[in-house]
Design a protein around this nucleic acid. Structure first.
Length: 858
DNA sequence: CATCCACGA
């Protein structure tokens, strides 16, 4: 462990100039109806000035105009102590004698629950999903009957030729007669802005391997460009496909459906999509929409992406980890495969950066089709952005013409709180000032889907005939910035903050921080007001702050994340020389070093930084390396069935639900499942109970009654099946100790150590604080833990840095396990003097004494 | 006493 991959000399941050962009919002006069919203300066034209982009993640926390202290949270009413509830699910500690199996109430018996029948594999939901990525495409020469297309010269076609083929009478790809619906869609398609530049696009596409395509919202790029490519690239001739990647699953699915309609084919035939758990493609497929993560997975088993003739990366400006990794990979693949064409599609802001990254690729820009949005700034900085946003929303409701409101806040609690206050104030306005009705909806990712759907309900009608019109106000996290589009929004209120992930490689912690947004984000938010008609955006900061304080674009994820998973991916993608791998924004060398170090400790990389057998195996799993290593090691601990369930549970959203209205009952229900050794085993108890006959009789009711999330558990089931299949493919044994075995739970806790030995904290003296081993961070238990006893050593799943340093989802472990299972990491000579070292030394001494006693007895 | 932005495999 003394040799580490040498990372010296690669710590340069790339700096690239940002050019002026053309994306600005037109400013219109402020006199519609003579209504002026007080407290706002005149609308101003937005034109970002030239600025360098510093590639380093911002670690500062100061606000936009000034550091805004959040209003102190209302102290919650102390809830009365819950009555001692009887505990049918509590797992017994094995020190106690076990009751005989027959005496157990089946409902109370987690053992019976854990031996649930493995459900028959539902092929339907997987649609032939297979692990064999890059399987040969045995497609027949699909379009022999499409005469109009057969004459197409590959990579020499024109818009006129395409138009001719599109005009029918038969479908150029399937040969079938075209429907009347097709021709009606075709008419609207030809009105899209991109259509005007079809020839220009084709010429650039034909002459260059890389092409950067810039199109604003409403240009039609996501649906049309892949079709333009299809006519010219003719992937079916070579039995290849055109891929178009999306950062999000819903987008991949819905766009594929739309394009299938446009091309008058059945979804899954010529046009399909591929997301995790769902492969809706067939031998016929020539255009495939997919998530960027999915294409990355495929690339791991097909390093040259040989299945594809053209790859289109859509929404590249969002700079997800997968997009960035793919871009770096495609730069290399392009050299090995001169026949592969690559189109990068992005919003305007980053165009030049993409161009220069892809060897000065040609750029084509197409205007969007949106309505103008007036921007208002506050003349003075706001001290409290939550208070200011409430005031602004109410002011809009009081004095602006009809139209819905979208307010951006940072998190669930803030949003729910704001919704309550707006409702209260609005009711008063209706009573006292005859204001129109106002419906307020919260919106955030963890909200159940049926409640998320409510935001699409129409605004309320006037309360009486001829009364003032009603409107709706949506209070949302960043989810409404990109993932969800709500039509009918006319007013956007933007306080200028969002929660962002930050990674600190020094202490290996990812944390969420309320931070100022970027100019790009602010523009995106404002744009949400102009989807259906001209709108207004109220920014709760000064114009000066916008110009001077906000960074141009949000730092890409690759600069804000722990990269161990990405580094493992890159190794599997055949990138040997990470140091010279050309990422668009190279991460801090310390981050890369940390990732390599972690993977080395996990034995996924050897001391030379090469992928080990374990590393190869770990990369087969769609999991973080820690979880993958834990899962792969679990048969050694005779509990791979259980660890498989646990891994699935740790990969899905929180299983426990705790609605504000029923916190006490939710906590009571949770305590029914509590295991004295911690949260991991508690989650396992929930899962086993969920798979038991009582819960399966009516899962929805059972989950509701027990305050657990049906969605999360079903999703865990899904993940479990996928992981199980991968285990079977690679012949990783599925084994369990009998539940009566006194080591049943100990085995699982020891297996946890095999992956999470780097995430362990030790108790500090008699206080409630813990200190993480090696990184020496002071941490406390997250309030959600079920742990009652104060254990000296805890293994944690997550380090959550919010108001305090929390460790969340914890399990008690023993120091002798740590040294036994992870001897390299717990090599005592590598610890500096301190409480951890002394504690480890005491453990060694204790073990030695025991051995000695044993020896004498013999 | 007190509890996580959004995605993805």
């Amino acid at each position: 462990m003394d040799r580490r991959p040498d990372l010296q000399g690669q710590g340069r941050f790339k700096r690239r100039k940002m050019e002026d962009t053309d994306s600005r919002y037109s400013a219109e006069s402020d006199d519609d109806g003579g209504v002026k919203v007080g407290n706002f300066a005149q609308p101003t034209e937005v034109k970002p000035k030239k600025e360098d982009l510093d590639a380093r993640p911002s670690r500062h926390t100061e606000g936009i105009d000034q550091l805004v202290e959040k209003t102190s949270k209302k102290k919650r009413k102390k809830e009365e102590d819950a009555e001692e509830a009887s505990d049918p699910y509590i797992a017994r500690q094995h020190e106690e004698p076990l009751p005989k199996k027959k005496e157990l109430d089946p409902r109370a018996n987690p053992y019976l629950a854990h031996r649930y029948e493995e459900p028959a594999e539902d092929e339907g939901s997987y649609n032939g999903y297979s692990n064999g990525y890059g399987r040969p495409t045995n497609r027949m020469n699909g379009v022999s009957n499409a005469s109009s297309l057969a004459r197409f010269p590959r990579h020499k076609s024109t818009a006129a030729m395409a138009k001719n083929a599109e005009d029918g009478p038969n479908n150029p790809f399937s040969g079938q007669p075209l429907s009347s619906q097709y021709f009606s869609i075709l008419k609207t398609r030809r009105n899209l802005p991109v259509h005007q530049q079809r020839d220009e696009f084709l010429q650039m596409y034909q002459k260059s391997q890389f092409l950067v395509f810039v199109g604003e919202t409403g240009s039609g790029k996501t649906t049309q460009i892949p079709q333009f490519v299809l006519f010219d690239d003719q992937p079916q001739i070579q039995r290849k496909l055109v891929a178009c990647t999306q950062p999000r699953r819903v987008a991949a699915m819905s766009v594929a459906q739309r394009v299938a309609n446009e091309m008058d084919v059945t979804l899954g035939d010529e046009v399909g999509y591929n997301i995790r758990f769902e492969d809706v493609t067939s031998q016929k497929t020539i255009l495939k929409y997919m998530t960027d993560g999915m294409l990355l997975r495929e690339a791991m088993n097909d390093n040259n992406l040989n299945r594809y003739s053209t790859i289109i990366l859509d929404e590249a400006h969002e700079r997800t980890l997968a997009t960035d990794t793919l871009m770096g990979l495609l730069k290399e693949v392009a050299q090995r495969r001169p026949d592969l064409k690559i189109v990068i599609m992005s919003a305007t802001l980053d165009a030049q950066k993409f161009q220069s990254y892809f060897n000065d690729a040609p750029l084509l820009a197409v205007p969007g089709r949106t309505h103008p949005v007036e921007i208002f700034y506050t003349p003075e900085p706001e001290r409290d952005y939550v208070e200011a946003s409430l005031r602004t929303v109410l002011q809009i409701h009081a004095s602006e013409p009809e139209g819905d409101i979208l307010l951006f806040l940072t998190g669930e609690e803030e949003i729910e709180d704001a919704c309550r206050k707006i409702r209260l104030e609005a009711d008063e306005m209706i009573r006292e000032a005859d204001a129109g009705p106002l419906t307020v909806y919260p919106l955030y990712g963890t909200l159940p889907p049926n409640q998320q759907q409510k935001i699409f309900d129409p605004a309320p009608p006037p309360s009486k005939k001829g009364g003032r019109p009603g409107r709706k106000c949506i209070v949302s996290t960043n989810i409404a910035e990109t993932s969800l589009t709500i039509d009918g929004i006319v007013y956007v209120v933007d306080p200028g903050f969002s929660k962002q992930k930050i990674y600190n490689p020094r202490i290996r912690v990812e944390s969420l921080l309320v931070s100022p947004i970027s100019k790009a984000s602010a523009q995106q938010r404002a744009g949400r007001a102009g989807r259906t008609r001209p709108g207004k955006c109220f920014r709760l900061y000064t114009e000066g702050a916008f110009k001077k304080e906000l960074i141009e674009t949000t730092h890409p994820e690759v600069l804000r994340s722990n990269l161990s998973s990405t580094v493992l991916d890159l190794k599997k993608l055949g990138i040997d020389d990470l140091v010279h791998f050309d990422l668009m924004d190279p991460p801090a060398p310390e981050t890369l070093m940390r990732a390599l170090e972690e993977l080395n400790y996990l034995a996924c990389l050897d001391d030379e930084g090469n992928l080990t057998a374990l590393g190869k195996l770990a990369s087969e799993f769609p999991l973080d390396p820690t979880l993958a290593v834990m899962l792969i090691s679990s048969p050694e601990f005779y509990c791979s069935n259980e660890v498989l369930s646990l891994t699935a549970l740790l990969s899905v959203p929180q299983v426990f639900v705790r609605p504000a209205s029923a916190r006490k009952r939710a906590d009571e229900m949770k305590s029914l499942f509590a295991h004295p050794d911690g949260d991991h085993l508690t989650m396992l108890n929930v899962y086993h109970a969920f798979k038991g006959p009582e819960a399966q009789a009516n899962p929805k009711q059972w989950c509701h009654d027990h305050f657990v999330s049906l969605r999360a558990l079903q999703s865990a089931d899904n993940v479990r099946q996928q992981l199980k299949r991968i285990m079977e493919t690679h012949e990783i044994e599925l084994v369990s100790a009998p539940f009566e075995d006194k080591n049943y739970y100990t085995n699982i806790r020891r297996a946890l150590v095999a992956g999470f030995f780097m995430q362990v904290a030790m108790k500090e003296g008699n206080s409630k604080t813990y200190v993480t081993v090696k990184d020496n961070q002071n941490v406390i238990l997250h309030p959600s833990t079920v742990l009652q006893t104060e254990s000296d050593w805890l293994l944690y799943n997550e380090f959550v840095l919010t108001t305090k340093n929390y460790i969340r989802t914890v399990t008690t472990v023993k120091p002798e396990w740590l040294m036994d299972i992870a001897p390299t990491y717990y090599n005592i000579t590598e610890f500096g003097k301190g409480p951890v070292k002394s504690a480890l030394q005491r453990t060694i001494d204790k073990v030695r004494r025991k051995e000695a006693t044993k020896g004498r007895k013999r």
